[in-house]
């Protein structure tokens, strides 16, 4: 008994800093944020309780909120799968025997160490409709490139393209997963006459499912909070332009939330948005976990 008490004390001593941080920087703010979400609060005057009005207004009366959800879902449903796919293809290519593997690994990985703001600024110029390198190359092939970040239809594809360029972190995780596949499995499959494609589909991918699942979860959580790239690029359109343009096509959830909090000082409204976001992330994560039983293989 005394020993386990002593252990408890020792354990708490070590995890103490985190517990204090958790209480002060996570739990307390969570409680307060739930409270603010039921108030009208502009940071200067004290919060005024207004019940569920913020939520009602968000869900029923705010077209911007709908736009923000639409844009964010677009990224989760189209952007994220594309990014994961590109990362997976890169990883598979690097896992093959071949010349200059280290060189290519470094090259593929490099974009993801470029600071996000620098990368965003760079891509504004890479995708400049008139003088950017992508449209120039397209033109030399006989295509006329789109307006990218100046065109509401092409701004999100532009962001997805940029994200695909910088997907090196995910790629490395895939690569680590690939290197865990036991060589013996391939060898026995080869004896059965399996080709490259069959080995990929029947051995590699199933074994990789936990890694795919992990990347999917992490990717989803961060895509729901997609912010910096779109913020930098859309505000870069002019020195007095609010973020989210053109035509609200890059108004993502986190951007609209930020604007509410810090441009309009609608702190209560922003807190309500944050809680809705949290609930969506929670539910999506749970759904993914429940579905994982069907397609994620934890054996071997």
């Amino acid at each position: 008994m005394r020993r386990s008490l002593r252990k408890l004390a020792m354990g708490l001593f070590f995890v103490g800093p985190w517990v204090i941080g958790f209480l002060g920087f996570t739990l307390y703010p969570m409680v307060m944020s739930a409270y603010y979400s039921l108030t009208n609060y502009n940071l200067v005057n004290p919060p005024k309780y207004i019940g569920w009005n913020n939520y009602i207004r968000l869900l029923q009366m705010d077209p911007q909120f709908k736009t923000a959800i639409g844009n964010t879902m677009y990224m989760v449903l189209f952007g994220l799968p594309i990014w994961l796919f590109v990362a997976l293809v890169m990883a598979v290519l690097l896992n093959e025997k071949g010349k200059l593997t280290t060189f290519f690994r470094t090259l593929f990985y490099l974009p993801s160490v470029v600071p996000t703001v620098a990368a965003s600024v760079l891509w504004m110029w890479v995708l400049n409709p008139q003088y950017g390198i992508v449209n120039t190359l397209l033109k030399s092939l006989g295509f006329s490139g789109p307006g990218w970040f100046t065109d509401p239809k092409w701004s999100k594809p532009g962001l997805i393209l940029m994200g695909a360029w910088a997907t090196g972190g995910t790629m490395i995780i895939f690569l680590a997963g690939l290197q865990n596949v036991p060589e013996a499995l391939y060898e026995s499959a080869e004896l059965d006459g399996a080709g490259w494609w069959r080995k990929l589909v029947h051995i590699t991918l199933p074994i990789l499912t936990p890694t795919i699942f992990f990347n999917l979860i992490m990717g989803m959580i961060s895509t729901f909070q997609y912010f910096t790239q779109a913020f930098v690029i859309s505000r870069g359109a002019g020195s007095n332009v609010p973020p989210g343009g053109p035509l609200g096509s890059t108004l993502f959830y986190a951007i609209y939330l930020y604007q509410n909090a810090f441009s309009y000082l609608r702190m209560g409204y922003a807190a309500a948005m944050a809680w809705l976001l949290f609930i969506v992330i929670l539910v999506s994560t749970l759904l993914l976990f429940r579905s994982s039983g069907k397609w994620v293989h934890y054996d071997t």
Binding site: Y28, S33, Y36, I221, A270, A274, W275, F278
Partner: peptide, 10 residues
Amino acid sequence: MLPYQVTMVP
């Protein structure tokens, strides 16, 4: 899993 936005305002 907690989005930063939840604690941002408080």
